[in-house]
Design a protein around this nucleic acid. Structure first.
Ligand code: SF4
Ligand code: SF4
Lengths: 147, 147
DNA sequence: CATAAAAGGATAAATTATATCCTATTTGCC
DNA sequence: GGCAAATAGGATATAATTTATCCTTTTATG
């Protein structure tokens, strides 16, 4: 019942890319340094994000990674599912009939609801939202100072 | 991001006890049979539920288990946390300061919200609710037949 | 061609989840 | 008292998953 490290790393990495100047490419190793993520592990995560279309990657000397689409079209759900696969709170939600009790199981209905709410929340939160909020949080101490 | 087997088993076991006549005790082995749970594993789960006060257990020849308190005072959250420990969606929610980025991390706020909603849902659903719904579901096919 | 980057396969290490075994303890009953 | 049936609990085994690294390949730049 816990987000994996992969998922947390992925969100941080995407956020890192999103909050850098868009005209310059970012290199995975530097993301790893800034975000304190094991560098080789991060390359795997970046690879998943790239395959999901959330990052665009460029090989070679001047290579690196950039957002695969505008930050407001990338949801947290997409990021997490890109690296962890589909989210399901209980196995009966993988697909109908995965648990043969699901028709008569009152808990099943509860999981359907809980999962719906969770996915809804994640699907409605965009990387752009997070990036904006990150900026606010960074400026918050300044604001205190200025006031 | 998935409920463990322990949690699912625990809910089923509690529901099994709750839907049996309250004047007779239930024996763990029979719960395991009815609910298709590995019997020896279930004894461990029952033990956790008992230590949390959700079940009362009785040793000896005429022993077994019974609800530790009225079904409407047992929430799904209590059941799951009894066998899985505290639920947290991401590690920064274990306790404040567990992740030293939490002050400046916009994702943290999202997890706080998501966790709040999930726990709220589980805390507000009682075993009695589930038992009632179980009965409805059992009668549903009959209703189809009668109509 | 040398260098710097991502891609990808194989594998290692660590952790957690699932499950069983064995012995002890409690209790009811003959 | 002694047997049988039940939970209690420690130790352990097995399996699965997660986390992380290593090594080789491919791609692009200058
Ligand atoms: S909640 Fe019910 S339907 Fe879902 S896996 Fe558990 S028993 Fe099956
Ligand atoms: S979401 Fe943010 S605060 Fe929470 S663990 Fe991840 S980085 Fe830390």
């Amino acid at each position: 019942m816990e987000l994996s490290r992969r998922g947390d790393y992925a969100v941080r990495a995407m956020l890192d890319v999103a909050t850098r100047p868009a005209d310059r490419m970012t290199v995975t190793k530097e993301i790893a340094l800034r975000q304190d993520i094991p560098p080789i592990f991060l390359t795997k995560i970046v690879s998943s994000l790239s395959q999901a279309g959330l990052l665009r990657t460029y090989r070679g000397v001047a290579g690196g990674v950039a957002l695969g689409k505008p930050a407001d079209q990338i949801s947290l759900l997409q990021i997490i599912e890109a690296v962890e696969g589909p989210i399901y709170i209980n196995r009966c939600l993988i697909r109908r009939g995965e648990c043969d009790r699901d028709r008569a199981c009152p808990a099943h209905e509860l999981w359907v609801q809980a999962q719906g709410e969770l996915l809804g929340l994640l699907a409605n939160k965009s990387l752009a939202d997070l990036a904006r909020r990150a900026q606010e949080l960074q400026q918050a101490p300044m604001a205190d100072f200025a006031a």
